[in-house]
C-alpha cells in the first residue's frame, strides 16, 4: 500500500465506523426496549424508528456549544477530541476480513490494548478541566477502575495469543480454523468471560459504570459538556464498545471464519451478537459498589486470569 492509498483506506474506515456507531445507538435502544418489554424508538422513521440516530445527531449539532467560564478552556476542548481519536485509533489494527486490515503488524494485539488504555486520559482531562466536583470525582473513579481492570483485561487477552502463538490478529484468526477459542475446554470460556467483564469495566458500562453513576454523580465526567462535545464522548464510548465487540469476535469466536458467507458478513454477525450480549448484561444487573467492584477485580478476576494464563501456557508447551 502506498501512503496515499492507506490514507484513503483510513478515511473510508473512519466514515464506516462513524456510520456503524451511529446506528449502534439505535440497536442499543431498540434491544434495550425489547429487554424491558418496550418497543424502543418508533415514531421517527416509522415503523421502527430507523431515522432516530440521525434526528439525535441533528439535535446535538444544533445545540449551543457551551464552555463554562471557570473551566480550563484548552483542556476542556481537548478532552472530547482525545477520547474520540483514541477510540477510533484502535480500529486501525483490527482485521475486518482475513486480508483487510489497515495496519498489519506483528504486535496488533499489543497495540490495540495500548491505545485502549489511553482513553482514560481523555476522561481525566474532561473531569479535571470541567472544574466541577462531580466531574472530578467521576474522573478519579474512572481512573482507579480502568487502571485496576487493565490487569485482568490484558491477562485474559493473552490467552488467545498464547493459544495461537502470536500477537498478530491474522495468525490468531487462522489458528481458530479448527475450532473457536471460546470452545477450548475451560481455558477458553474463562478467558472469554473475564475479558468481556474487564472490557465492560474498561468501557465504563453497566454494571461497572461507577464514573457515570447518575444517582451519585449526576452525569459523571461529562456533566459540563453539551451539544457536539457531549456527542463526541458518546461517539468515543460507542466506538470503544464496537471495537471491544469486534475484538471478542476475533479473539474468541473465530472472527471472519465461517461457512458459506463471506468473511465480512461473519464478523459483522458475530460482532452484533457480542454487542447484544453486552446489552443483555447491561440490563440484567445493578451497578456495583466501588468496593465490590475492586474486590471483584483483585480477588476474583486477577487470580483467575493469572491461573488461566498459566494453564494455557502449560497446555501449549506440553502439547507442542
Amino acid at each position: 500500500m502506498t501512503f496515499a492509498e492507506s490514507v484513503s483506506h483510513g478515511a473510508i474506515l473512519l466514515g464506516a465506523i462513524i456510520g456503524v456507531v451511529t446506528y449502534l445507538t439505535w440497536v442499543e435502544r431498540k434491544f434495550s426496549g425489547r429487554l424491558q418489554s418496550r418497543i424502543g424508538p418508533y415514531l421517527v422513521g416509522r415503523p421502527h424508528g430507523w431515522l432516530q440516530p440521525i434526528a439525535d445527531a441533528l439535535k446535538l449539532l444544533s445545540k449551543e456549544d457551551i464552555t463554562p467560564t471557570k473551566t480550563d478552556r484548552f483542556l476542556f476542548n481537548l478532552a472530547p477530541i482525545w477520547v474520540v481519536v483514541m477510540s477510533l485509533l484502535g480500529f486501525a489494527f483490527l482485521p475486518l476480513t482475513i486480508n483487510w486490515v489497515l495496519v498489519n503488524i506483528d504486535l496488533g494485539l499489543l497495540y490495540f490494548s495500548a491505545i485502549g488504555s489511553l482513553i482514560v486520559i481523555g476522561v481525566f482531562i474532561a473531569g479535571w478541566a470541567s472544574n466541577n466536583k462531580y466531574a472530578l470525582l467521576s474522573a478519579l473513579r474512572a481512573a482507579a477502575q480502568i487502571v485496576a481492570y487493565e490487569v485482568p483485561l490484558l491477562l485474559s487477552l493473552l490467552v488467545p495469543a498464547v493459544l495461537a502463538g502470536s500477537l498478530n490478529f491474522q495468525d490468531i484468526i487462522l489458528a481458530q480454523e479448527k475450532y473457536w477459542f471460546i470452545l477450548f475446554p475451560v481455558v477458553g470460556q474463562i478467558s472469554g468471560i473475564t475479558f468481556l467483564l474487564a472490557a465492560l469495566a474498561e468501557g465504563n458500562r453497566i454494571p461497572f459504570d461507577l464514573s457515570e453513576a447518575e444517582s451519585e454523580l449526576v452525569a459523571g465526567f461529562n456533566i459540563e459538556y453539551s451539544g457536539m462535545k457531549f456527542a463526541y464522548f458518546y461517539l468515543g464510548e460507542y466506538a470503544h464498545l464496537l471495537a471491544v465487540s469486534i475484538l471478542v469476535s476475533i479473539l474468541f469466536l473465530g472472527g471472519p471464519l465461517g461457512p458459506l458467507l463471506s468473511g465480512g458478513v461473519w464478523i459483522a454477525l458475530k460482532t452484533l451478537i457480542v454487542f447484544l450480549i453486552v446489552l443483555w448484561i447491561r440490563w440484567s444487573f445493578l451497578r456495583l459498589r466501588i468496593d465490590q467492584m475492586m474486590m471483584l477485580n483483585w480477588k476474583v478476576l486477577v487470580p483467575l486470569t493469572l491461573g488461566n494464563l498459566l494453564v494455557a501456557g502449560l497446555w501449549v508447551s506440553l502439547s507442542r
Partner: peptide
C-alpha cells in the same frame, strides 16, 4: 431479562 425479550412488548 431474557424472558422479557421473548415477551411481546407491552407498550
Amino acid at each position: 431479562t431474557l424472558k422479557n425479550l421473548l415477551r411481546k412488548p407491552v407498550t
